[in-house]
Structure formats: C-alpha cells, structure tokens
Computed example of a mutant assay.
Amino acid sequence: MSSTTHGTTPYYFVPGPSAYPVMAATGLFFVILGAGQWINGHQWGAWSLLLGMVGWLATLFVWFRTAIGESESGQYGHKIDLSFRWSMSWFIFSEVMFFGAFFTALWWTRTHSLPALGSLDNALLWPDFKAVWPSIAAGATGSPADIVEPFQTVGPFWLPTINTALLLSSGATLTIAHHALRAGHRAQTIRFMWLTVLLGVLFLGVQGYEYHHLYTDLNLKLSSGAYGSTFFMLTGFHGLHVFIGMLMLLFITLRLQKGHFTPERHFGFEGAAWYWHFVDVVWLGLYMLVYWL
C-alpha cells in the first residue's frame, strides 16, 4: 500500500500484513530454548537449536528478498530511506552499548575489583593476594585451591597487529568502493568490495589461528580467571560481528553484480558500510585496551 505524491516514487510505503515477524520470533525462540537446554546437558536441545536456526535464517532470507524486491521496484521513497537510516543508527547504538558493557567490565575489574581484593579488609577472603593485572603476572599469588590453571598473557605482536592492519585496510577499500559507486563506476566498486570481503576473511583466519595458539601454547582459555573471560568475551564477540559484517558486505557485493543500487539510491550499501566501520572502531579499542594495556 502506498501513496504517490511526487512523480512515480511513493511518498510513503505501508507493507501489507506479513507473517515474517512471527516466523522469525518463533525461530529465535527455539534457538534460545535449544541453546539453554543443550548447555545444561539435554541432547534434544541441539536439535531445537539447529531447527530454530534453520527456520530463522530461512525466514530472514525470504523477508530480505521481499524487501529487496520492493526497493528495486521503486516502492521505497524518501520516507522509507529515512526510516532505514534511523533504524540502522539505533541498531549500531545498541551495539555500542553492548560492547560498552564488556569494556566497562574490564575497566571495573582492573580499577575497582582488583584494588579492593588487595586491600587489608579482604585479607581473609584471599590471603597474600597481590593486586596486579593479570592475576597470573609475576609476583602474583596463585588462585585459591588452584582453580585457575597457569597461563601466559598475549601481547600486541604480531597477530593482533596484523589483524589491525587488515581491518584498517578493509575500511579504506570499502570507502574507495563507496566513492566509486557514487561516481557511477560499478566495476571498480565491485572490485574493491571483493577486496574488502577478502580482508574480512583473512582477519577471521588470523583470529582463528591466534585462538589455537592461545589455547595450545599459552594455555589461555575462557576459564583463565578475569583476564581470560574478558579477553575471549571481547575478542570473541567482536569476531562474531566481523563475520556478520563480512556476510553483509558479501551480499551487497552480489547485489552490485546483479545491477542493484545507483549513485543516488544505495542505502543498503551504506548501512553495511556503517556497520563495518563500527566494527573497525571497536577493534581499535580492543587493540589498545586488551592487547596493549
């Protein structure tokens, strides 16, 4: 349903009744239910997780295909474009809050929890505890009852630095692709988009190799005290976001090859670019606060 007041482009667009939101919510329900049951030892939870994920992804595929068809048929005007921009902005803001919680946990642990445990008031809680970061550092005492296995910390060289170069380069290639699209150079846009996707894949490959090195050579795990838990929660969730962003850029590249987007109308491209640049910024924070400090 739409109302046309400016030429052939609808001033606003109101979609008809759709079952997609209910279908997506149902899929996510079974994903969460299955994950919770599987973690607690119920094997049927794995099947619930799998079926829910398949249903959710299938719904998203059909839903996005419908939205793309509506966009390419000219049903989306300025108002819809504006609503998409606001929606993506609020989504990225929610992601800022998501990562902000983990960064705050890291900051609180190092600046408040650690000194508090090292004070005389908590001597009975952990005798001879020394307030150093990480808790396995030289001069620190072992954990009570050896709960945390000895491990080595990880520095910025060289794998994290290589990944930093890869992500920053991908941000540059994506920006070049955007300028090429706005200038009407589709072939150049596609080339630099494929290069951006490749850099994202390389980042994930390097991070996977780093995780293997940490587990096998440094004995650094999610269970390695506050250091291990904050390290893997921050880098792991960031890696997940890189994977999602890489898929977004891949789909945008495939759409470009099909002739979608114009120099004037390409918010799908811009939304994915916003998300990717956000992932870049988060990594810079990780690189400084987790690997360097």
Results as ranks from 00 to 15, higher is better:
L114E: 05
V148A: 02
F261P: 00
Y275P: 04
N122A: 09
G55W: 04
P17I: 08
L256V: 07
W158T: 13
L33W: 14
L218P: 02
I252V: 15
S113C: 03
W194F: 12
E149Q: 12
L254P: 04
M248K: 05
P144R: 12
S229Y: 13
L50E: 05
A187Q: 14
D81I: 11
S169C: 08
Y227G: 00
T109W: 12
G41V: 00
E149K: 14
L286T: 00
W47P: 02
F237S: 08
R186C: 05
L114P: 02
A165G: 12
V96F: 15
A172Y: 15
Y12I: 13
A137Y: 11
G268C: 03
W86N: 05
S170R: 05
L166A: 04
F232M: 10
E70K: 14
N163G: 11
H212N: 07
L28H: 04
L222P: 03
S87D: 02
Y11D: 11
A272D: 03
I92R: 03
F261S: 00
A183H: 13
V201W: 11
T216N: 10
S223E: 09
S223A: 12
P156G: 03
I68Q: 13
V197M: 04
S113W: 14
M97P: 02
Y20P: 08
S89F: 15
F251G: 03
G228S: 06
H213P: 01
H112L: 08
F157S: 10
L199V: 05
G142C: 05
